[in-house]
Amino acid sequence: MAKIKITQTGSPIRRDKTQRATLVGLGLNKMHRTVEVEETPEVLGQVRKVAHLVSVEAA
């Protein structure tokens, strides 16, 4: 599987609880944190849900 880098660029303040939980599920909880994860359908679905709060690039 390919890996992708996900960086949190937006604040979860005043966002829905599910969006906050999705960020935590991806391993992000503070601004400008970056995680490298496997590119699976589950992860891509989470990224799609919070696309306005993260930036994604190939690793």
Rank of each mutant, 00 (worst) to 15 (best):
M31R: 10
R15H: 14
V43C: 03
M1T: 10
L26N: 08
K49R: 07
A2F: 04
V37D: 08
A58L: 09
I6D: 00
L28Q: 07
G10F: 04
D16F: 11
L28M: 06
I6S: 02
V54I: 10
K30I: 03
T22G: 00
K49I: 00
S11D: 01
E38R: 11
G27H: 11
L23Y: 06
G10W: 08
V35H: 01
A59T: 11
Q8R: 15
A59W: 10
K17W: 11
M1G: 07
T7E: 13
E42L: 12
Q8L: 15
H52S: 10
A21P: 05
G10L: 08
L53R: 00
G27F: 10
V54E: 04
G45F: 05
Q8M: 15
V50H: 03
G25N: 13
V35P: 02
V24F: 08
A58W: 02
M1L: 10
N29F: 15
R20D: 07
V54T: 06
L44Y: 04
M31L: 15
Q8F: 06
V24K: 15
R14Y: 10
V56D: 00
Q8C: 04
R33D: 13
I13V: 11
L53T: 01
L44H: 03
K49T: 01
G10K: 07
K5H: 00
Q19T: 06
V43K: 13
L23A: 02
V47R: 10
P12T: 09
V50P: 07
E38V: 02
T34Y: 09
V56Q: 05
I4R: 04
I4P: 03
R14D: 11
M31V: 05
V54L: 08
P12V: 13
T18A: 15
L28T: 01
E42Y: 08
R15W: 02
V56F: 03
A21I: 11
T34Q: 15
K30D: 07
E57W: 08
K49W: 00
K3W: 09
V35K: 01
G27Y: 13
V43G: 02
I4Y: 05
G25P: 03
T34I: 06
I13D: 05
I4M: 04
R14Q: 07
L28P: 01
L23N: 08
A59G: 11
R48W: 05
Q19R: 12
V56K: 08
A58M: 06
K30L: 14
A59M: 10
T7Q: 12
N29W: 14
V24W: 13
T40E: 03
M31W: 07
G45E: 07
G10R: 11
Q46T: 00
P12S: 08
V37I: 14
V24H: 15
V35Q: 00
R33N: 13
G10T: 13
D16P: 02
D16H: 12
E42P: 06
T22E: 01
H32W: 15
I6W: 00
K49Q: 04
K17P: 05
V50W: 10
K5P: 00
R14I: 05
V24T: 13
H52W: 04
L26A: 01
E57R: 14
I13A: 11
T22S: 03
T22F: 02
Q46C: 03
Q46W: 07
N29C: 14
A59F: 13
V56H: 02
V37K: 14
I6M: 02
L26G: 03
R20V: 12
S11F: 01
L53C: 00
R14K: 15
V54K: 10
K30M: 12
I13H: 08
A51W: 09
A2T: 09
G27T: 11
I13Q: 03
V35Y: 02
